[in-house]
Nucleic acid binder design. Sequence first.
DNA 1: CATAAAGTTTACCATTTTACTTAAGTTTAG
DNA 2: CTAAACTTAAGTAAAATGGTAAACTTTATG
Lengths: 161, 161
Amino acid sequence: MQLTRRAEYAIRTMLDIASNLDDQPLMSKEIAARQDIPPNFLIQIVPELRSAGLIHTVRGSGGGIYLTKKPSEISLRYIVEAIEGPIALNQCLIGEASCSRKPNCPIHEVWALAQRQMLSVLEATTLAGLVDQSQPGKRAGKTSTATDVAGKINNEVELEV
Amino acid sequence: MQLTRRAEYAIRTMLDIASNLDDQPLMSKEIAARQDIPPNFLIQIVPELRSAGLIHTVRGSGGGIYLTKKPSEISLRYIVEAIEGPIALNQCLIGEASCSRKPNCPIHEVWALAQRQMLSVLEATTLAGLVDQSQPGKRAGKTSTATDVAGKINNEVELEV
DNA sequence: CATAAAGTTTACCATTTTACTTAAGTTTAG
DNA sequence: CTAAACTTAAGTAAAATGGTAAACTTTATG
């Protein structure tokens, strides 16, 4: 019931790159040092982010990592699922035919709702929003922070049961 | 990031007992058979529910299990935490001093919000509500189903960031 | 009072996941 | 050509997961 370290490190890495204002790619080692990530662990995570299409990597001297999309287009959910695969708070929420007790299992419905609530936060939160929150003052335009999301959730997020 | 089988089985067990209209205690074996739980696994889970104060157990012939509280007073969160310990979607949400990156870690804030959203569902859902949902027709008075909760979440649940 | 029914306790087990570490590549700028 | 940087593939110790099994205690009932 907990985020893995891999995924947490992936989020920190993405956030570190998004916070980088220069155009030159960032080295994995630098990111690891800044974000308290075991460097040899991070170089294992980087290829996964690349396979998921979240980053580009440049090999060789002077190489490094940069984002493939704008920070405002990358949600936390997307990063987590790139590392851990689809989020499912209960086994019965995996795929369609994964629970023999459906239909009419009230337990299933509750977890489905709990998961939608959680995902709505992870989807509404983008790297751009997180950068704004850690770098106030520099905030520019339409991004989304946890505080913003908290206000929105109760008004705008669609809920269906 | 997923509920353990232990906790899922614990929920089914509690729901099975709450659905029982007789006054006599239910046998662990019967519950296991009805709820698709490996019987030898369930007899390991039952003592944990007892230690947590959720059920009373009666030993010896004619013994069995019954609830210590009214189904309307037992939330899903309570059952899950009885088995798995406190829920924490991210390591940094465990206790107080568990994250060296606080304060001002935007990642922490997002997970805290996501967790509150999830917990609000698990707290608002009681065994009584679940019983109602699986046994329509017999519904009596003020209980809470997933559908009800979905309606409530956006209006009544307190959110602070 | 014997016995079977029921929960209790403890120990064990195989498999998978987690969080890393290590080492031998490959690519590319300079 | 060589050092910087990512790539690939193993390996590994510890913990969690999902069970199974066996010996034990308590209690109703005949």
